[in-house]
Amino acid sequence: MLLNYLYSHFLEESAFAETCGIPLHDLLSLMNRRIFPAPSYIYESNSRSVSFVSDFDEDATYRFHLRGHEAWFDAIRLFGFEKEERARRYFFSRYETAKQTFLTSELGRKLAEIVPDVPEQFNSSHADMTWENFLKGVYGVCTRDGQPESVFLKQAGVMFIEELTSTGPGSLATPELRLLAQAVTLLDRVESEFAPHEALHASRQRCIVDVQSKFLDKAAA
């Protein structure tokens, strides 16, 4: 059920502001100044509650923030970000560190050898898109914690997996299948479960569930 999912992984906006220890209008100001991401889900309620005591009709809008984004607020408070450019520089300092760490790792180097065009896609246009999506709350939907490191690993995982599987099942040699399995495991660690109505259409289905059943289970068999 959608509400169960939202309340398990997210906080309604007023509760999120309270958790951060700031008034709601201050949180809204951070979003307006493009320092803090927008809510990842907006839930419009037109509902009715029936109980022994009283019936209740409600028409309201709820805005849900990823619980993990509290860590981004902590960084804003720690470093005193007042303008977007400083917040963006901090985001990409962490993002770039995650990128270099991954691409110099054994898995990252081997994946880049097989599909060298993926690292080249992390250019300035990609950075602009990443920052805009971060501010829109997109990575609160598709990553577990919404942090810059997870954002990079989610992007890289999807991109490498899509490239590796683009030629279809049966096209990969055993060493490539091993790399594919490691990339799927990496993506599984950082990518969210997605809301019930999104699951079948999300990258988790395409890049983890489908890849495991079409490529990896058959290889294991």
Rank of each mutant, 00 (worst) to 15 (best):
Q155I: 13
L135E: 10
L200G: 06
L179K: 08
V141S: 04
W131D: 00
L135D: 07
G157A: 11
D188T: 13
S203W: 03
G137F: 10
S150K: 12
F134Y: 12
P119R: 03
V209I: 15
K136N: 13
P196T: 12
T174P: 09
V138A: 12
S171E: 14
F122E: 11
D145G: 09
E163T: 01
E193T: 10
S203C: 05
A199P: 00
A156Y: 01
P175Q: 05
S124V: 05
S166R: 15
V118F: 01
L153S: 07
R178L: 13
P175A: 03
S150T: 09
E162A: 12
A202I: 00
I161E: 01
E149F: 08
Q121A: 13
V151Y: 03
E149A: 14
R189I: 02
C142T: 04
G168W: 08
V158Y: 01
V158F: 04
P175V: 02
S171V: 06
N133W: 07
A173M: 14
V158M: 09
E132P: 01
S124H: 07
D128A: 12
L180R: 12
P175S: 05
T167A: 13
R144S: 00
R189H: 11
E120N: 09
A127T: 05
I208Y: 12
F152E: 04
A195D: 13
V184R: 06
R178H: 13
L179R: 07
L172N: 10
T167W: 04
E191T: 15
K154I: 01
Q147W: 07
R204Q: 00
C207P: 06
C207W: 09
C207R: 08
D128W: 03
E176D: 14
A181K: 14
N133Q: 14
R178K: 15
A181H: 11
T185A: 13
Q205H: 14
K136Y: 10
S171F: 03
H126D: 11
Q205G: 00
L177H: 11
R144N: 02
T185K: 12
N123M: 04
E162Y: 01
D188G: 07
E163Q: 15
A183T: 00
M159E: 08
A156L: 04
A183G: 06
K214S: 08
R189S: 10
Q121L: 09
M129I: 10
L172D: 03
H201T: 14
